[in-house]
Simulated scan of single mutants.
Amino acid sequence: MISLKEYLNSGQTVLSNIVLANYRRIGMTNEEFLFWLQLYRHHQSGNDFPDLSIIAKDLEMEQQEIFALLNQLVQKQVIEIETLTDAFGKKNDRYNFEPIFDKLEQLMEQQQKKVVKKEQEDKVATLYRTFEEEFGRTLSPIQYQRIGQWLEEDRYSPELILLALKEAVLNQKYNFNYIDAILLNWEKNQINTKEQVDAERKRRKRHQMQKEAPQTKKLPEISLYNWLEGEE
């Protein structure tokens, strides 16, 4: 049985769980990764170019198999063999482990792009569904095209279009031209977020209240606004 002292003196290999979870996704086999891990173990202990015969012995494999695994890792661009010259002019070989981390970074970026794309697709699907729910019917092809133009050509976010739809519903204007006027007004006034929309709504409500104050004491909770005409 290994003693505690022997256990502590043997050192540890520290490796991110990202590598463990994704080495197959960047094209490495289990056998290649185990060999790479042995190289990395020596690297962390300060030996950047370990004797492959030692690794072959640890893995109980033939040296020919080890050389084949090394060649596969180089071909798959997850490791590089570099020759460096020290201050005394002596050349030394070493294994460069940066390529695998570059590949993992690219993989993470691709996965993040997929997540963002999926979220955007879900938001667009929700946008179309909400329009049909509010209008109480299936939208016409022209109306689908109009929403597509807001998204693709005008670059309005799904969230902003939903806010414009809500504004139209509050004013009981189930009209695409009316919604378009809202979006154009917001674009003109650089209104792009829910917080900015809420602030604009409060501003218009105060403006409407000031206009109506001399005429009546009881003010409506929601002041309707005609986006097609604008403020007087």
Rank of each mutant, 00 (worst) to 15 (best):
T29A: 14
F33T: 07
F33N: 03
W36E: 00
L39K: 04
Y40M: 10
Y40G: 09
G46D: 12
N47C: 14
F49W: 00
P50V: 11
D51Q: 15
K57H: 15
D58A: 15
L59S: 06
E62A: 12
E65H: 11
A68Y: 08
L70W: 03
L70H: 12
Q72G: 01
Q77N: 09
Q77V: 09
V78C: 02
E80N: 08
L84Q: 06
T85A: 09
T85D: 02
D86Q: 13
A87S: 00
F88V: 08
F88K: 11
F88I: 06
G89K: 06
N92D: 06
N92Y: 12
Y95V: 01
Y95N: 03
F97M: 10
E98C: 00
F101L: 13
D102S: 05
D102V: 03
L107K: 03
M108G: 05
Q110K: 14
Q111V: 06
Q112W: 04
K113W: 03
K114L: 13
K117P: 10
E119M: 11
D122M: 13
T126C: 12
Y128G: 08
F131H: 07
E134F: 12
R137Q: 13
T138M: 11
L139M: 11
I142T: 14
Q143P: 07
Y144P: 04
Y144Q: 07
Q145P: 08
Q145W: 00
R146K: 15
G148S: 05
W150N: 00
E152W: 14
R155N: 01
S157C: 05
E159T: 01
